[in-house]
């Protein structure tokens, strides 16, 4: 466990808790893409199928349970409890445009042609693009609440920190995970525009507005 990976996981947990906090305290899913959260649910379920079969550490299992349960809770809040506040008209990204390619790629590029490994690769590829509906929604609505910006910053930082972790592991352990690294770079690059807006606006106390 490198420091970067721990920092990345903690940033990920922070993002998940920030989102739950925002929806629960404002009793509103306004500005939040339900589609992104649905896909994150798929990411965790398809990635952690080994939750009951392979034990890595208490930390690993605890985080898996946390990610799955928190993402299910988030989807529940958006589509059921605070359904009336869900802004479906601005959450128009076609999920199949990312789910199908991720599945096809997972069938082609995986570490073994087994259900588990194909499911794992699908999860990695899907996670890389799962944020797209949320980023599209921010551009469509033209702005994002501050806490939503902080949520996105923490979420984008998590995989950026993992990239540092992968560099660290390659340098010290001499091996790397091509699928995870490739997808992780794509995932982090997709936040590029948001990171720019975040650092030029939100940090200076201004609302995150996508310049028209």
């Amino acid at each position: 466990m490198t420091l970067f990976r721990l920092a990345g996981d903690l940033s990920h947990v922070l993002a998940i808790l920030l989102l739950l906090y925002k929806i629960w305290t404002t009793k509103s899913a306004a500005g939040i893409s339900g589609k992104t959260q649905l896909m994150f649910c798929m990411v965790y379920v398809t990635r952690y199928l080994d939750l009951f079969t392979s034990f890595i550490s208490v930390y690993n299992s605890t985080m898996k349970v946390l990610f799955i349960s928190a993402s299910v809770a988030t989807v529940y809040l958006i589509y059921f409890k605070f359904k009336a506040t869900y802004d479906g008209n601005h959450d128009t990204f076609r999920m199949e445009f990312v789910i199908v390619p991720a599945l096809i790629l997972a069938l082609i590029w995986n570490y073994a042609f087994t259900f588990f490994e194909i499911s794992w690769a699908f999860s990695i590829f899907l996670e890389a693009v799962a944020i797209l509906p949320q980023l599209f929604m921010v551009t469509k609505t033209g702005e994002a609440e501050n806490i939503t910006s902080h949520y996105l910053f923490a979420l984008g930082s998590y995989r950026a920190l993992y990239i540092l972790n992968w560099i660290d592991r390659y340098y010290f352990e001499g091996h790397w995970d091509p699928i995870a690294v490739t997808a992780g770079i794509v995932q982090t690059v997709l936040y590029g525009d948001f990171f720019y807006l975040y650092f030029t606006r939100v940090i200076k106390g201004r609302k995150l507005q996508v310049l028209p």
Partner: peptide, 10 residues
């Protein structure tokens, strides 16, 4: 570990 199959990361 044989690298890949031990998916030890989240």
């Amino acid at each position: 570990s044989d690298g890949h199959n031990a998916h030890d990361e989240l």
